[in-house]
Design a protein around this nucleic acid. Sequence first.
DNA 1: ACGCCTCTTGACGCGTTCTTGACGACCCCC
DNA 2: GGGGGTCGTCAAGAACGCGTCAAGAGGCGT
Lengths: 225, 225
Amino acid sequence: MSRVLVVDDDPRLLRTLSIALRAHGNDVVTASDGRTAVLSAAEDAPDVVILDLGLPDLDGTEVLRRIRTTSSVPVIVLSARHESDDKIEALDLGADDYVTKPFGVEELLARVRAAVRRSGEVGRQIGTVRTDHFTLDFSERRATVERAEIRLTPTEWRLLEALCREPGHLVLQQDLLRSVWGPAYGRESNYLRVYANQLRRKLEPDPSNPRHLITEPGLGYRFTP
Amino acid sequence: MSRVLVVDDDPRLLRTLSIALRAHGNDVVTASDGRTAVLSAAEDAPDVVILDLGLPDLDGTEVLRRIRTTSSVPVIVLSARHESDDKIEALDLGADDYVTKPFGVEELLARVRAAVRRSGEVGRQIGTVRTDHFTLDFSERRATVERAEIRLTPTEWRLLEALCREPGHLVLQQDLLRSVWGPAYGRESNYLRVYANQLRRKLEPDPSNPRHLITEPGLGYRFTP
DNA sequence: ACGCCTCTTGACGCGTTCTTGACGACCCCC
DNA sequence: GGGGGTCGTCAAGAACGCGTCAAGAGGCGT
């Protein structure tokens, strides 16, 4: 199914994770130090990397930085509870998710699945989206309504991007929250209500009768061109 | 494909890299001391240089400095693990990337590709840019506002160059910082604010209501003719 | 050695954006 | 008809990013 690179200096943990991952149909490669990890990330072409920040030879963030120079593979960071600074730095450097030790194997497996699923979707760049009323150019960050250019805030862009990735398809609240606000969110649906509202006021001809940003009650939102 | 100059005093490493690079369709030139390296960089017109900082005759940074006097070829620095000062100094002197020894060949190859790709984008020369209010001649380094010639500092020119390479396009803060201040930068957005401000005061008709140097909050800047 | 120009860096105010709570309207199910 | 849940809407405080200023460091030519 997916190839997972697991990086940790604890052989016991390495073994546990390998067994669990293989039991769920994954191909597993392991590394117990930073240098090996960077090499493996480049050569074994994993679909996702699980990276412990506390490695013997290199700083965890340095490992992440080097992996990022050659690959955009999703990285899930493992961190001890107290090293919260590392965690934040790791997310800044392009980690996709993090798990705090100690953690449950089931939780980690779920995050691996989510990371693989997202990387398939996110990789697809979207260029321009048109409707009969407005135009969105994502690569240039330009939005025009009735030929007039309007301004959208960064968060509004991110929400639109998540919605327009698959025009006409329903996107779940949880997925929207995660791709806009990050992996730590998932239940704050009021954020979505506020921003969906703002977007309608800026983009829809009649904001209270939306034709393009459709609510699917209890589930999520849908963009229809 | 690309011509690569490899500079190292270890014949074994030289040989390994030559084979790997040629196997990927590159043309390879080698040098085992600093003086030869400087000459070759000037005469063989390589597309990228791989430079070991520990050379017998000259200090690595000195080699880099001399190469930079005759060429803007991208340079990837090889450094032993603990000499982090050299590394930083090398980046300051205009190295484009660095790899710490020991390293994987695949990683180095990836960095060579990245360096060549970047230089292709950056190398695109721009001639003259005109607006209704000012004119910029990049090849002659002349700027005129309302027919009057004004002076711009080197950093101001570099920033303008990065912005005007694709008129009308959004350029991300990170890209601007990297092409003006070097690959070691990426988060110092206050530099951008200072220089964008200076440029507006020199170029814009109404500096506090810019029409050509547009801010895209949270993302970067855009030049519109 | 001196002065000038440039670059770096910190500080501050301001406007925008984000977050968060509150409230009423609506729908569905009981 | 009532109750619980979800949604749209509004508003206010907090947080953030940007423009702006100015002081100090460093380099260069005189």
